[in-house]
C-alpha cells in the first residue's frame, strides 16, 4: 500500500516541489492549498507523471476547514502517513510600529496557528496507525530574526519550539516530527517581487554556495525526512540555505 502524504501550501513553490518529490517516491499526495486552482494543477501534473493525487481547497487558519480537509483525505485514502505543513508566508515587510493587530494576526495564524490546527487534526490518525511523519516549515529568520519581518520571525521561531514539543508528545506512538527551515528560495511568489539580478545582488555574496535555493533542493530534504534513513531523527531543525545560516 502506498503511503499517503498531505501537503499544505502544495499548490505553489516549495509545496509543489515537495508534492512532486513525494509522488516520485511512491506516495499518494493530497495537495491542499488556499488557491484551489493551483492545487488542482499540481494534482494534474502528478497524475500526468503517473502518480496518484487529490486536490483540496484549504485555509489552514480556519479550524473547521482543517477538520473537513483532513477528514476528506483520511476517508478517501484510508490513512495519512506524512503531513507536510508548508502553507505560510511573510506577507508584509515593514517596521514593527506600522503593523496593525490584524496584520500581525494574519502572519501568526497562517504560519503558526495553521501548523497547530493541522497537527491537532492529523496526529490522532497517526497515533492510531502507530506511524507517521510530520514536517513543519520554519525559516532561517526563525533563528536569526529579520528586520521588517517581526511577526514572521516570531511565528517561525514558534514553529521550531512547537515541533520539538510535538515530537516529545508523539514519539511513543512512533511518530516523528521535524522542522525544515528554507533560506532564500526561488519560488514564483518571491521571483514576482524581485528581478533575478536584484536577487543575485542581494544574496550571492552572503551565501557560501553562491546561489539561492531551488524548490527542488528543499523537496529532497523533506523527502529524506520521510524515509527510513531518518528513522532516528525527531524534534530537529534542518536548514537548507546554501550555508547562509
Amino acid at each position: 500500500m502506498n503511503p499517503v502524504a498531505l501537503i499544505t501550501g502544495g499548490g505553489n513553490g516549495i509545496g509543489r516541489a515537495v508534492a512532486q518529490r513525494m509522488a516520485v517516491g511512491g506516495m499518494i499526495v493530497v495537495v491542499a492549498d488556499y488557491e484551489y486552482a493551483a492545487a488542482e494543477q499540481v494534482r494534474a501534473e502528478v497524475e500526468e507523471a503517473g502518480g496518484t493525487a487529490a486536490a483540496l481547497s484549504l485555509d489552514v487558519t480556519i479550524a473547521r476547514e482543517v477538520k473537513v480537509a483532513v477528514g476528506e483525505a483520511a476517508q478517501r485514502f484510508g490513512r495519512i502517513d506524512v503531513l507536510a505543513n508548508i502553507a505560510g508566508g511573510s506577507f508584509y515587510t515593514k517596521r514593527i510600529e506600522d503593523f496593525t493587530w490584524a496584520e500581525w494576526k494574519v502572519v501568526i495564524d497562517t504560519n503558526l496557528k495553521g501548523t497547530f490546527l493541522m497537527c491537532r487534526e492529523v496526529a490522532p490518525i497517526m497515533q492510531k496507525q502507530k506511524n507517521g511523519r510530520i514536517l513543519n516549515t520554519a525559516s532561517n529568520y526563525g533563528v536569526t530574526g529579520s528586520a521588517l519581518r517581526a511577526p514572521y520571525s516570531a511565528a517561525k521561531a514558534g514553529i521550531i519550539a512547537f515541533t520539538k514539543s510535538l515530537a516529545l508528545e508523539l514519539a511513543a506512538d512512533g511518530i516523528r516530527a521535524n522542522t525544515v527551515a528554507p533560506g532564500p528560495t526561488d519560488t514564483p511568489r518571491v521571483m514576482e517581487k524581485e528581478t533575478p539580478e536584484a536577487r543575485q545582488q542581494r544574496w550571492y555574496s552572503s551565501i557560501p554556495l553562491g546561489r539561492t535555493g531551488r524548490p527542488e533542493d528543499l523537496a529532497e530534504l523533506y523527502y529524506f525526512l520521510t524515509t527510513p534513513e531518518s528513522a532516528a531523527i525527531t524534534g530537529q531543525l534542518f536548514h537548507c540555505n546554501g550555508g547562509l545560516v
Binding site: 515530537a167 546561489r211 529532497e220 529524506f224 532516528a232 525527531t234 537548507c240
Partner: peptide, 16 residues
C-alpha cells in the same frame, strides 16, 4: 546529490 544545497549544518540523530 540530493543534499547539494545543504552546508554548515549539524544533524542531530538521537531518537529525540
Amino acid at each position: 546529490d540530493a543534499a547539494a544545497y545543504i552546508t554548515g549544518q549539524t544533524y542531530n540523530i538521537n531518537c529525540g
